[in-house]
Design a protein around this nucleic acid. Structure first.
Lengths: 342, 342
DNA sequence: TTGTAAGCGTTATCAT
DNA sequence: ATGATAACGCTTACAA
């Protein structure tokens, strides 16, 4: 029975004493070191003692001496976006299974720099940075840090990405096939790589089809539901309006969806609306949001896996990897272009 | 210029050497110890040296000697529920501002016990457990751990709660005032305190009003959108159906909302539906979900604050606190009871 | 006011 | 195969 005064935690010393061996021997057994050549009888005594006393290794002490903390940081811009939550969740699972702890950092209004300092101080073995503006950092802010960038490629830094340009392209193709010729776009005000690439893929595909883009229908707004809602309201208030609008993420699209509902603009009859991410909410609204499925959890999981691989064998993360595939999820908010009214 | 070989990180020793003082003196200055009586000139030299070298204290080493890691664990059942995400987010902010790191644990299918072992090994100073079944733990699983329970009161353990029973009561009053007499309920299959209390408050208020509850309309299902959807589908398929349904959380309610849309049951004309939590999505669906506002971020923030207070001055967390107030957000899915058809 | 010495719990490098 | 001994980076008595 592990019935002991809970005051002082059990250390290797206690185990060693209890097993009648020296402290380092106990350590050798308990740290599961492969080079540990210790007599089976001794090993058993130590293991038993550890079990009997309820020994639990102090990860901090281990980290200090080994120079590895077995913890990683995960930095995301905003947990209000389920996409990032899924990235975190996917990463957490992989990390946990490998015995790594996850130090969660939500960027919020705190500068990235500051989060990095904190993580550095805590000796994280590496970190995941998701769309938090890593490209704008001071050169040696990431110096000596094992980092995997998520959806934010920077030359010479390992990262995982989704096929963001393809996402925009898919939307353009879908809408063009439905006969649309007047296109709008809603994107985040901040320079987020994935959003920019989605925009670029969309715009490029449209231009290839000979569509002329109107800047009045191209809007930037905070990447939130409220932002999407107000941007769409403004768009609808304009003299002319597009027949199809692509939103760089589902949060924006859902806000836009709402704005349409409030303005009495019927989807998809009066306007086609397509988002990107395919968060769970996308299927809750009526009509269901047409969007592009982006595997957020898989993205986070892959990023974590890449980071852990890199920690195990430095250099492997450099090998470029295929972007994660995306796919169109055509649902209820995209339909044939209306006959020209104006 | 912090231009040094990035190989070996700067330690107090380096700073001390650079400043021409002994290592402990440097430590005394840098650890901002209030008892540090050190000459201003010396202090300045140390501070300058630290700055010049880009010194960053090793939090792990500090933790080891001080017996405080300045890290807390946060354990939540499921990040797919935005309510828990908000709790995490609120807690993270408070923790970060106080210089504490957050070790995130998503329960998932891993037993709580295992998460606790991990956090214990990492010497967290305390932890927040949100509705993860802490009440069912082995007696000394939390032994010696500073824990604050969130929405899951256990005798003699500090915690913060919302006024869950009141939430159910508010819904009952609201629906009764609208003339309803036939009530249904959808709750999670797992024994979650807040859900049970919401249910209880609802049921009690209904009984007080002389309403007879029908067990066929009282259903348990996984606490997800899918769960809510299928439970509502089943409910609607029954011979008789209630005129009003309360869902123990918004995820369930949104699933139910969806099921109604698919079944052609008009809200609120044919059925009144009320959720609980007031997650952001609640206002996105059409008609907007009537629900009860529960301050999730504030809950997480308060929990973190309580935990940090407790760490600073042990014992304060024992003082019982008022539950966080909830308020009805009557929106579009609740309306007058339909005239009896059957 | 400052330097010396000890120690936090662990792992790692040696002799033995 | 095992046991001293040192080290990781830091804090904290205590002595000078």
């Amino acid at each position: 029975m592990p019935r002991r005064p809970p005051s002082r935690p059990v250390t290797v010393r206690d185990v060693a004493r209890h097993a009648g061996v020296s402290q380092p021997t106990a350590s050798l057994v308990l740290s599961a070191n492969p080079t540990a050549r210790v007599a089976d009888a001794t090993r058993q005594r130590v293991v038993d003692a550890a079990h009997a006393l309820g020994y639990r290794p102090n990860v901090l002490a281990r980290a200090l001496v080994r120079g590895r903390s077995f913890a990683i940081g995960v930095l995301v811009p905003d947990l209000r976006n389920p996409f990032f939550v899924d990235v975190v969740s996917g990463a957490e699972r992989v990390a946990a299974e490998a015995g790594y702890a996850v130090l969660l950092c939500e960027q919020g209004r705190t500068p990235v720099q500051q989060h990095l300092e904190m993580l550095r101080g805590r000796q994280v073995d590496g970190l995941l940075i998701d769309a938090a503006g890593a490209s704008e950092l001071h050169a040696d802010a990431l110096d000596g840090l094992n980092v995997v960038l998520v959806d934010e490629p920077v030359a010479a830094l390992p990262g995982v990405v989704t096929d963001a340009a393809r996402a925009g392209e898919l939307v353009a193709e879908h809408l063009l096939a439905l006969g649309h010729r007047e296109f709008g776009f809603l994107g985040p005000a901040d320079p987020v790589w994935s959003a920019r690439m989605r925009e670029r893929g969309y715009a490029a595909a449209l231009r290839r089809a000979g569509v002329e883009l109107r800047t009045a229908w191209w809007r930037r707004t905070p990447a939130t539901i409220a932002g999407g809602q107000s941007a769409m309201r403004t768009l609808l208030a304009g003299a002319a309006r597009p027949t199809a609008v692509f939103c760089a993420n589902d949060l924006l699209a859902l806000g836009a969806h709402k704005a349409c509902a409030l303005a009495g603009v019927r989807l998809p009859e009066a306007l086609s609306l397509v988002g990107c991410d395919d968060i769970e909410m996308a299927r809750l609204v009526t009509p269901e949001l047409s969007t592009v499925s982006v595997p957020a959890r898989a993205l986070g999981a892959r990023a974590a896996r890449l980071l852990l691989d890199e920690l195990r064998t430095p250099g492997v993360a450099r090998r470029p990897r295929q972007p994660l595939a995306v796919s169109l999820a055509a649902r209820g908010t995209s339909g044939p272009a209306p006959r020209r009214a104006a």
